[in-house]
Simulated scan of single mutants.
Amino acid sequence: MYLEHVNLVVSNIDDMLSFYRAAFPHWKIRDQGKGDWYGKPRTWLHFGDDYHYIALSDHGEGQNRELEGHSVGFAHFAYVTQNLDAVIKRLNDAGFEIAKPGGTNPYRRNIYFIDPAGFEVEFVEYLSDVPLERNSTYD
């Protein structure tokens, strides 16, 4: 079993695509359309590869939860990369800055960005193939 997709409700799909295209240059729009969500029109699309994607819908209203606060809600999601420096460079080149550094761990490197809708996205590069090391917590 694996996670196939995350569905994010946003106010501007094009802004989101600028972030995720920089993070995942090999991904493409897999499918898209228009519809109605409980009486409100929406445009939606699936952006990803053949196995994983992000579903985006543009019928969002208001602001995302404060990440520094204690409100119930989505905290962050993470993607594994083989080259964290390349992801950082692509996102920086696209105008996105690192939101916060990751922890100190001899077996992995990670970094956090905030996407245009206010979702925190972690990118992690593992430096070990040993599960006990990869899953250890250090700070």
Rank of each mutant, 00 (worst) to 15 (best):
D36V: 12
P131F: 09
E4D: 15
D31L: 06
N110Y: 08
I29P: 02
Y107H: 15
S128G: 06
G102Q: 07
R30A: 03
F19C: 04
L127K: 15
I98W: 02
Y51A: 11
L67K: 13
D14I: 00
A23E: 04
V9P: 01
T104A: 11
A94D: 09
G103T: 03
E68C: 06
A86G: 10
P106R: 14
G118T: 06
I114Y: 09
A117L: 04
Y126G: 02
S11M: 07
R108K: 15
N12W: 05
N7Y: 02
S128D: 08
I54H: 02
E125K: 08
V130T: 15
G62D: 12
G69L: 05
E125C: 07
K89D: 12
P101R: 09
Q32W: 01
G95R: 08
A86W: 06
D85R: 11
F96P: 07
Q63I: 07
N92K: 14
E120Y: 01
D93R: 09
R134S: 13
K34M: 11
D49E: 14
E4M: 08
G102I: 05
E133M: 03
S136Y: 08
E120L: 11
F123Q: 01
G48I: 08
R65H: 14
I88A: 07
E68R: 13
V121H: 03
K40I: 05
S71T: 10
R109G: 04
G103C: 00
D49V: 01
G73E: 09
I29H: 00
P41C: 05
H59V: 00
N135T: 07
R30K: 11
L84W: 10
I13Y: 04
N105C: 12
D115L: 04
I29W: 01
D50S: 11
K100P: 00
Q32N: 07
K100N: 06
G103D: 08
R90I: 03
H52D: 09
V9T: 15
T81D: 10
A22F: 04
Y79I: 08
L127C: 11
S18C: 08
I54K: 00
N110W: 09
G118I: 05
L127W: 12
E122M: 04
D50N: 14
K28F: 04
H70S: 15
T104Q: 13
T43L: 00
Q32A: 09
Y126Q: 04
G73T: 05
D31S: 12
V124P: 05
F96A: 06
D49N: 15
Y2R: 13
L17S: 07
K89R: 14
W44R: 00
L56D: 00
F77K: 01
K40H: 08
H5D: 03
T137A: 12
A94V: 10
F74C: 07
T43A: 07
S11E: 10
N92A: 12
F47G: 04
V72H: 11
S71K: 14
D115H: 06
L84S: 11
D115P: 05
N105M: 02
D58C: 00
L3P: 00
N135Y: 13
F119V: 09
D129G: 10
G35I: 03
S57K: 01
V6Q: 12
V87S: 09
A99V: 00
G102W: 10
Y51H: 13
V80G: 06
A22P: 04
D15L: 11
V6S: 09
V124I: 15
V87P: 06
N135P: 01
H5Q: 08
S136M: 13
M1E: 12
Y51N: 12
K28W: 01
L17Y: 02
F77Y: 14
I54E: 02
G69S: 14
